[in-house]
């Protein structure tokens, strides 16, 4: 079954151009100049029910604009879309009962009230029966481990606690399709991991289709089975994440801080690892996962040199996309 389908979906904006300075502002006032910006260019996309799709791209690539069109809150300039059988911008209300949305940078929880109040409100808005709501709430509170926060005003919660409540709230009405726009932004590694597990679990147990945008390669790697990369409003790549992992997500970064007087030359010579950046006593070591493993490199380095601090990171998604972009010829990019 198809969860969502788009054909040549496009969105253009008119943006006012302004020259710098006061004179420029006056000129823009008298004779405004407009520039047309193509935020989304003829996107063709089909997502099957139950899929977990990562929708990726650098800032300004058109990810959020696409999500806003698919949830019906923005009208496209051209093209078609059907989400769960509805044309989103024409049947927004009917669609709203069947989808869930989490905008990582916007909160749906009432700031001065405990999350349980927003949960109650959502149950009324989505017309859940009292019995169904209470059972569902109990289940989500248990799974998301948010019991201790349910009666604390939202303003007193940490970002991680709040995000768990946000995602649980968005699942209260059992959405068949969940749109997550940067759900792990600003969270620490442990909370990110937990949130990914919880989303994956919902996908597994309830068959919820997940459509996610993220800047975090970890979200893609651990949560999604398919990655769609857009750049300059068009689709650059649409492939299984497994393939992407083999081809592109095959590097990790180790950040090392060495103690005063340590010899950085000792970092050289580890198979598949190279120092790519130095900042004072901090060194960035890039590891090629096709040739070696993180554990092997760390074991080798710890055996050789005293280390003050160490952290392991995924490469930033921007870097991966730049890499993909370089790999493909411009004519291959959908325009």
């Amino acid at each position: 079954m198809i969860a969502l389908h788009t054909r040549a979906l496009s969105k253009t904006f008119k943006v006012k151009r302004k020259q710098a300075g006061l004179a420029g502002s006056f000129r823009a006032l008298m004779r405004p100049e407009w520039e047309t910006k193509e935020a989304v260019k003829r996107i063709d996309l089909t997502v099957e029910a139950g899929e977990t799709v990562a929708f990726l791209g650098p800032n300004g690539a058109g990810k959020s604009t696409t999500i806003k069109m698919l949830t019906g809150i923005m009208h496209p300039t051209a093209g078609e879309a059907k989400v769960l059988g509805f044309v989103p911008w024409k049947e927004r209300n009917a669609l709203a009962y069947r989808i869930g949305t989490v905008f990582g940078q916007k909160s749906q929880l009432w700031y001065h009230l405990p999350p349980v109040d927003t949960f109650d409100l959502i149950s009324r808005i989505y017309e859940l029966t009292r019995g169904d709501y209470l059972t569902r709430k109990r289940d989500l509170v248990d799974r998301f481990e948010i019991g201790p926060y349910m009666n604390t005003p939202v303003r007193k919660l940490s970002l991680g606690e709040r995000m768990r409540c946000e995602i649980a709230a968005s699942m209260l009405h059992r959405p068949r399709l969940l749109f997550l726009d940067e759900p792990t932004i600003g969270l620490d590694a442990v909370v990110k991991q937990r949130i990914r597990e919880l989303i994956r679990e919902r996908n597994r147990t309830e068959g919820t289709t997940v459509f996610l945008t993220s800047h975090d390669a970890g979200d893609v790697e651990q949560l999604c089975s398919r990655a769609v990369v857009i750049h300059h409003g068009g689709i650059l790549l649409d492939e299984p994440v497994e393939k992407l992992k083999r081809e592109v997500l095959n590097r990790k970064t180790i950040w090392l801080t060495l103690p005063e007087g340590a010899d950085p030359l000792e970092l050289r010579g580890a198979e598949g690892a190279e120092v790519t950046e130095k900042n004072g006593r901090r060194y960035r070591v890039s590891v090629d996962l096709k040739r070696t493993g993180i554990e092997q490199v760390l074991r080798l380095l710890i055996g050789r040199i005293r280390i003050e601090d160490v952290s392991v990171e995924d490469p930033p998604l921007e870097e991966i996309i730049q890499h993909l972009y370089r790999m493909r010829k411009p004519e291959e990019v959908t325009t």
Partner: peptide, 13 residues
């Protein structure tokens, strides 16, 4: 301005 309207418009109300 801050886009919070998105949260309201995606509700069935």
């Amino acid at each position: 301005k801050n886009g919070d309207i998105a949260v309201r418009l995606t509700r069935p109300f």
